[in-house]
């Protein structure tokens, strides 16, 4: 089961091969059959290196140095964690742009165990300068995210997941959107966390912001939303808890805020099962998010007022 986001990614990437002669698709034995059509039409621009992830990233850097726009795909642990030094040196330090696209977000591959899970991928990328990380919340958001990432020459990471909202929430290409306005605080829901965050806050007088970006966030927009409510902020993030702190701090620097981060716990679960079971175990289902938000909003209210 490939997942709807990954299907859309492969489809749009093949369209981009037709439309933009700079593009190349670089693979390491994962999702290869999904690019058959693109490979038939552009045999020299769809390359499968076999199970060689260090080469996958080094070669992306080398291709960019020759003017290509590489779209590089594997599962998150093998795309980001295993060849992280290649990302640091052959893409960032080299000044060679690329579009990394992962499948298998956080606990998507729950039954695969820890080896196939990489909730810290976005945190790792956040240690490097100048990257844009896109976290589509619905398969219909993949098209726009990928096309925006491929445009230009910058460093881009698109993180696909089997978790999804019921519909696309990005309608006009803007990176953030106010889903509802309230007075008790602001909750930022990232990517696939939007539906369950809305459910958890149903009937509550809080603002809920949706974004399909891990970073960068639009400063002015977010500051105006946060300053319109009590100085209480919570982030619901589909990856390692705390990943968004750096970006939240950059955007809200100087503002006295009470902050809570709700994401994937750092502890290894050592459980298999389904992605939903993992979401529950991490407190990332509706009930878990509601519990954390209630506690935070309650504490914040008692200490602030």
């Amino acid at each position: 089961m490939a997942g709807a986001m990954r299907e859309r990614f492969a489809q749009v990437a093949c369209e981009l091969l037709d439309e933009d002669p700079r593009t190349m698709v670089l693979l390491a034995d994962l999702s290869v059959a999904m690019f058959d059509a693109g490979h038939r039409r552009h045999p020299h621009r769809v390359i499968n290196f076999g199970i060689r992830e260090q080469l996958l990233i080094d070669a992306a850097g080398g291709a960019a140095l020759a003017g290509a726009r590489p779209i590089v795909h594997s599962f998150a642990p093998f795309l980001i964690e295993r060849p992280f030094e290649q990302i640091k040196i052959s893409l960032s330090h080299q000044g060679a742009g690329a579009v990394l696209v992962s499948a298998g977000a956080s606990y998507d591959i729950a039954s695969g165990g820890r080896t196939h899970q990489a909730p810290a991928d976005v945190a790792l990328i956040s240690t490097l300068e100048g990257w844009t990380v896109r976290v589509p919340g619905h398969p219909d958001e993949v098209d726009g995210a990928l096309r925006a990432a491929v445009r230009g020459e910058s460093h881009q990471y698109v993180r696909l997941s089997v978790e999804s909202n019921s519909s696309s929430l990005i309608t006009d290409g803007r990176p953030m959107r106010l889903l509802k306005a309230g007075k008790r605080g602001t909750v930022i829901a990232i990517g696939p966390m939007a539906d369950r965050t809305l459910a958890a806050t149903e009937g509550w007088d809080v603002s809920v912001v949706y974004t399909d970006r891990a970073f960068p966030w639009p400063e002015r927009f977010l500051r105006s939303v946060i300053s319109a409510a009590s100085p209480v902020v919570a982030v619901v993030e589909p990856y390692l808890e705390g990943t968004s702190l750096r970006e939240l701090h950059r955007v809200t620097r100087g503002a006295p805020l009470s902050i809570e981060m709700i994401g994937v716990a750092p502890q290894e679960l050592r459980n298999y099962g389904t992605s939903y079971q993992h979401a529950v175990a991490h407190g990332l289902d509706v009930a878990g998010i509601k519990r954390r938000l209630e506690s935070h909003l309650g504490q914040a209210a008692s200490s602030w007022f």
Binding site: M24, L26, H42, H44, R45, I47, Q54, L55, I57, D58, A59, A60, G61, G62, A63, A64, L65, A66, G67, A68, P70, Q86, I89, S90, Q94
Partner: peptide
Amino acid sequence: LGHGPGLAAGTALAWRSQ
């Protein structure tokens, strides 16, 4: 150490496609 051959592979593949 160890990045040059992989970088060259990508450069050569891009040239081939061009």
